[in-house]
């Protein structure tokens, strides 16, 4: 995240109004996560239940197939793992920070 100067009181919209739509994308909430969803592509049946249920629109898809998880916005609520109907779960929750890239 850049450390640019936020606007002063003279240039902000009054009353706390937000005048642009869709700006939630600019607010990264991934840092709130305690547990992270891990996607296991081999188990995935691409039913997209996770995509439907995710309250933060953090399931990434391409041409109707799941491709990954947006960790910038995923808050780690675990709903995706809960609703995953695959016999062997295609999404499992792991402790955040417990498993880093390159670690085994």
């Amino acid at each position: 995240m850049s450390k640019e100067q936020k606007p002063g009181w003279k240039s902000l919209p009054i009353g706390g109004l937000i005048l642009t739509a869709g700006n939630a994308d600019e607010y990264n909430t991934g840092g709130w996560r305690v547990k992270r969803p891990e996607w296991i592509p081999d188990n995935c049946i691409h039913c997209l239940f996770c995509w439907v249920y995710c309250p933060d629109s953090s399931i990434e898809t391409e041409e109707g197939k799941m491709t990954g998880i947006d960790y910038e916005h995923c808050k780690g609520c675990g709903i995706c793992a809960e609703v995953c109907p695959a016999k062997e779960k295609a999404i499992v929750m792991e402790p955040e920070g417990g498993k880093e890239d390159g670690d085994e």
């Binding site: 009181w9 902000l12 009054i14 706390g16 109004l17 937000i18 005048l19």
Partner: peptide, 25 residues
């Protein structure tokens, strides 16, 4: 045509500016 948000959460980084605006108004 111009969707807006009214009454969002206004924390440490913006609340004070909005109060300053109120004083000016």
């Amino acid at each position: 045509e111009n969707p807006i948000t009214v009454g969002p959460l206004d924390l440490q980084d913006f609340y004070f500016e909005h109060k300053r605006q109120q004083s000016e108004a």
